[in-house]
Structure formats: C-alpha cells, structure tokens
Design a protein around this nucleic acid. Structure first.
Ligand code: ZN
Ligand code: ZN
Ligand code: ZN
Ligand code: ZN
Lengths: 381, 381
DNA sequence: AAAAGAGGTCACAAGGTCAG
DNA sequence: CTGACCTTGTGACCTCTTTT
C-alpha cells in the first residue's frame, strides 16, 4: 500500500525539494512562497486547507460547475471540491498527516480523593503507635543500616574508575562484581548489629544467611542503587547490562522506580526478609513417623517458631510505622506495593543466581560469612 | 528513494556495502543504515526520537488506536506512543543515555515524580482486567474447590455425632481428628484438579505438599470453618478446645472473623499458598563450590523458578480480580489483610503442629499423599 | 588514525490558535 | 471557513569522547 515512493518523507522530499527549488509555486493554486507540504509543494494556505479537509468527501460534495474550476491565488476559494481534488492530484497525501498533538496544558493538579473505606482489623496489636521499645528497635535498624552501608565505597570506586586517568566509560566485570559483592557482604554486618539476630543460635543464623542472603541482598541492593542513583551512571549500567543481560537490567530498573520512597520502611522490610521463614511449618520434635519425607526436612533443626515470631514482630513494626506515618489506607497500599516489588525482585534474583559469576560470588560470600560466624562462636578455640 | 550515492560505486563494492548495511535494520522502524543505539539497533532518526522522548509518559499519553501501530520507515510518525513503546520493546535503555554536556547552557532540571503510587505498575501484567484464560483458571479453581469440599461430610459427621442416639454434646478426639483430617486430605484432591499442579514433576509435587500442606490446609480449613459455621457448634468447639487448647482456639476464632468475606479471593489465596516457594533462591546447577552449605540445600532439586512463576501468576490473578471487583484501594486493603491473616494463622498452625496428635495426623496424611502420588506416577509398575 | 556511539544544532514541516 | 502567525517535533549533519 505504501511501498512506493509516493509517501515522501524528509529524505525523499528533500531531494525533490532541491530539484524544484527554483520554482516556488504552489502546485495547487500557483501562489508563490510554496514549500513542501504533505508530499507535494504548496503554499501555506493550501496546506492548511488540505489538513482541514481531510474528511472532505468527494463523492457527496460535488462541484457546482463542471469540476474543472481554475485554481489561482485569488480564485482558490471559489470551489472546495475542485481545490481539494487538486490537492490530491498534485500528490498531497493524507497519510503524511499526523495525529493531533497531546494537549500539554492538562495539569495534573487533580488529586483523587480516596473513597472512604471501612477500617479492617488487620493486626493483633490495638496500638496505632509504636511502643517505646519498638521505636528504639526501629531507630537502631535505620541507624545501623546507614552505618554499614557500602554505598560510600561503591561511589568512591565508581568515581575512581571514572575520573582521574580519563573519563572512562567502562567498568569491567570484576570491578562490578566487587561493588555488588560489597552490597551482599554488608548484609551480615547489618544483621550482626541487630540483637534479634545475634541472639539466635549459630546454626540458625547460618541457615538464615544461607537461605535468605540472595533476596535480602538484592532488596537491600535495590535501595542502595536508588540511594546512590547508580543507574544514572553510564558505566555502571553498561557493566550491569553486560553481566546480567538486558531483561534483568530492565526489570531491576523498573523496580527501582517502584520501590517505596520511604527508606525507613524499606530498611525494615529488608529485616523482615532476613528473618523470613517462608511459611515453613515444622515440628521441633524428632521426625518419628516421617518415613517418606525427603532429605529436605533437615530443616527441622530450624527453630522455626521463634524465627517466625521475630519476623512477625518486624512486620508488625513496619505496618504500624506506616500507619502512623501515612494513615491506614496508604499504609496498606504501600505495604502491598512493597510486597509485590519484593516478589518481582525475587524473580530477577533467581535469574541472577543462574549466572555463573553471580552465583559463584554469592556462594563465596555465604561460605565466608559462615566461616566468620563459626570463628566468632569459638573465639577461644 | 534509496541513497543514490550507491549508484557511483562499483558493483562489488556496493554488494559488500549493501551486505554490511542491510544486515543492520532498525529494530524500531525497519529502516536501513541502523547502528547500535542505547542498547538496541536503530536508525539515526529513531535514536533521536528516543533521546528526545525520554520523559514520554506511556501512562498519560495513550495510543489513539489500539496500541499496535505498525512501524515502518514511512509510518513511524503516525503514533508517538507506539514508536516509543517499540523503542523500549526492542531494548533501548534510558540508562544508556548520558547527561547533557557540561559546557553548554544549563537545562531545566528534571522534575522528580512525587512518590505517588502508580496503580497498574504494581504487577507484571499490564492488564487491569483478567484475560479470558485467567478467568477460566479462576473459574476452575473456584468450582473445583467447592466440588472437593469436605464440608458436606463434616456436617454429616457432626449431625450424626450430635443427633441420632441422643443430642450428644461431646465429640471425642478421634472423631475431631477425622473431620480435620478430611480438610487436610481434601487439599490434594483440590490440587490434583489444577493443571498447574499436575503438570509439575512428581518430585516437585511431593515437595510442595510436604512443605506447604500445614499452611494450605489450615487456611483452607479456616474458610471451611466459616462456610460451615462450625464454630457455632458447641460439640465441635469443645473438642477443639480439648485438643488444641484455649489460646489456639481463641486465636483461630479471631481470624475466622477477620478472614476476607470474598470466598473466591480466599480460594485463590489457598492456591497461592500451595505454590509457595518461600522466596527460596537456588541454583539449578550442581553445587560445585558449595563446600560449607548445609544439607538443607537438598532443596536444590526444586524447580524453584518455575514454581515461583506459577505462584506469581496466581498472585497476579488474585490481585487483578480484587481490583476488578473492589477497586484499587480496597483491593490493596483486602490483600494486606489477607496476608496478615495468613501470617497470623501460620503461628497457630505451628502451635498445632507441636501437638502430638495433630502433628502425627499430618505426617500420616503427607505420607499417604506421597504414596498416592507415586502410585499415580507408575500405574503400570 | 579510524570506527563507534554518545550529544548538539537548526532548518524544515508538522500541528495549534485566533482574529477576521 | 480562512490564513497569518506561533509552537513543537523531526532528521540530516555535525562535534565530542572513548574504544579498537
Ligand atoms: Zn496554494
Ligand atoms: Zn469546482
Ligand atoms: Zn528507525
Ligand atoms: Zn499507536
């Protein structure tokens, strides 16, 4: 339909334009100062005329004369039919017309007033505010998180890679792995300073790290990426694209915009993930009757109930904090959004885990952490 | 139409030229002479287009057609929305854009989008309504759930215990266990009729049952308790109090009032729990370097990524369904409430798991189910 | 030094407006 | 409806920086 050269675009029109430069006459009415318009050459008035009459129906509207009205500068108004027909004859194309521009004067000012919704009874605690103890835990979490944040190092590393010698736009895979490794390694430093973690047995801590480090690290990493505005760094992005591929990069990029703006909430959520027991229900007793159960039930050693209570404690804190800060409805919205973000991020974390370099890196970090834990446990021996 | 400079080249040269060039078609509009641009391959115009429209908001600016405008060299102007969307689709990355050069005059700073929660950005699917496929899955889940519901049997058993001889006000522990056992056993019948479950490997199904039956069963049980109004039955309550104790009974009773009134939503949530992979991140490859990892990593056999996608699929469906039915805000409220209810219920499930009778019962059921699964797998042998 | 891939420029050709 | 006048989007052609 549009395979021939009739549908001029700039490239083609320029050529013909050059050719016809000497004659600046409107192909429709003969007026001077004609220009390229809709695939032909016409004056501005004829251009406007054509655009305004795109829906003009040559079948319904007939010329009142013989359909051969002359078109001159002064006579072009005489007959709409013949003028439009001439426009088509000289090669004006409706297809070169573009859709109307968006009305940029629309202002966003409208804030939707959320409808009143009955209050659901979400939590156990009747308190709508955090207790003193909860505030101190929350404050501790926030403070410690920033204290151990690997962001300064990463930024430093980035600026060293970028500036001094010359403005390098390339970071190699190893450098990137180092920077991301800092993020994952910082998780243990973080948890180490949270009493609820250190009060657990070495074994439980090991298992938590081993099981949750991927997700805790990536969630924390998302916050760090945003804090440091790292996805604005060209070299950093490029290195990430190289290592993790386009899909993963894009997914993370989206989530970056979706992550809750409240850093405190995100930090708390990181802790929730760290204590995640994943709905596992296990009996602490010995597994007398479980003949058929697979080896995966080694998780039985897990002190799951305790861990679950800790997780719930932080979820409660997170939600009460959000209610306190944003009101009940917005808190629910944000909580759901946070959860969905985490779920989606988990997909990308799994993708990353399948990448040899990334997987190996995490295995190493987990092994290192485990070793560290064991050393701390038996400092005398 | 084509660049006429080709005419002046000798044939051989032109061939290689054409060959080299023709291998690079613009991924956006199909134009020739495309190059690497922003992470994809595009012609210069599309490159410019993309850079100029970095702030183009696909949410605010919609296609005036159906959002599937064709992109050709000549039709690329037709729809900004579709062109930009195609740019993103073919992998152009905003992040590969660089900030404006410094020596030039300052540009107007980007306006930072306030932390408004974007409604439809939450989930993976762009649709705000369920697709036909999703509706059939949902309808199937709902229907099957009611079909296999053990409630009729339980009610029958209750009335038999209560009425015929005399109005018995006592149900013994064994009878109660039988009734509750029906609930837990029904889970497998339920899942068995869900294609997403049956299409998994026997091994995976085993692990899911083994891992999630406690929670799936208790959540489903909560719905059944409410459907049958069982907590209005004196004898039933008394038996429960006897077996599970006062705290547990009261806790469940509270949750009973808190559970979402929408049965469809709860049923979907039961499925979500059934496919719960618990944020586990595992590498499918062999664990070459995992020296220190404990035995719990036997879970590696788990086809976690697949399972996670299934879970996400049902979560999406659940949320979209709720948005469709209640609007975005109420959907978030209900979703959060459902999640909190489940978390709280999980605590009681754990408590119950520690009760000898209950734990043994579940072990038996899990073992039975596993056996059933294996038999179904090898009907010939 | 050449190629590649970023950003920048400006004339041209679209769309929009409003008095006439 | 018309057309002078204005605003906005496009792309050929350019410069600049890093990689090869
Ligand atoms: Zn004219
Ligand atoms: Zn006429
Ligand atoms: Zn193109
Ligand atoms: Zn379109």
């Amino acid at each position: 339909m549009n395979n021939n050269s009739n549908l001029f675009l700039c490239k083609a029109t320029r050529n013909t334009y050059e050719h016809r430069r000497s004659s600046l006459l409107c192909q429709v009415c003969g007026d001077r100062n004609a220009r390229n318009c809709f695939g032909s050459v016409s004056c501005a008035p004829c251009k406007m005329f054509f655009r305004r009459n795109l829906d003009f129906d040559l079948v319904i509207n007939k010329c009142i004369y013989d359909g051969n009205c002359e078109m001159h500068e002064n006579s072009r108004h005489a007959c709409r039919y013949c003028r439009f027909k001439k426009c088509l004859t000289v090669g004006m194309k409706k297809e070169l017309t573009r859709p109307p521009r968006l009305n940029q004067k629309k202002r966003i000012g409208k804030q939707i007033t959320p409808p009143l919704i009955r209050r659901l009874d979400l939590l156990n605690s009747n308190r709508s505010k955090l207790s003193f103890d909860q505030w101190s835990i929350l404050s501790n979490v926030t403070h410690v998180y920033d204290q151990i944040s690997p962001l300064p190092k990463i930024l430093n590393s980035l600026s060293q890679s970028s500036f001094p010698p010359k403005k390098r736009l390339r970071i190699d895979g190893a450098t990137l792995a180092d920077m991301l490794g800092l993020i994952y390694r910082s998780i243990y430093s973080f948890l180490e300073r949270i009493p609820d973690f250190t009060m657990m047995s070495i074994h439980d801590r090991n298992l938590l790290i081993e099981r949750n480090l991927h997700n805790v690290g990536s969630t924390s990493g998302l916050l760090i990426l945003r804090d440091g505005d790292l996805y604005s760094n060209y070299a950093f992005c490029r290195a990430n694209l190289n290592t993790y591929g386009s899909d993963n990069f894009e997914g993370v990029s989206k989530l970056l915009n979706r992550l809750d703006m409240d850093r405190v909430a995100v930090k708390l959520f990181v802790v929730v993930l760290a204590f995640s027991t994943c709905f596992d229900v296990v009996r602490p007793s010995n597994m007398t009757n479980n003949i058929q159960l697979s080896k995966s039930t080694n998780r039985l050693h897990f002190n799951t109930i305790n861990m679950f209570h800790i997780q719930n404690k932080y979820i409660d804190m997170l939600f009460i904090y959000m209610v306190y800060r944003y009101g009940y409805i917005e808190a629910s919205l944000r909580f759901a959004a946070l959860l969905f973000t985490a779920l989606q991020l988990c997909v990308h974390t799994m993708e990353a885990a399948n990448i040899q370099e990334h997987g190996d890196m995490l295995d190493t970090i987990i092994a290192d952490t485990t070793r560290k834990l064991n050393v701390e446990d038996d400092p005398v021996v």
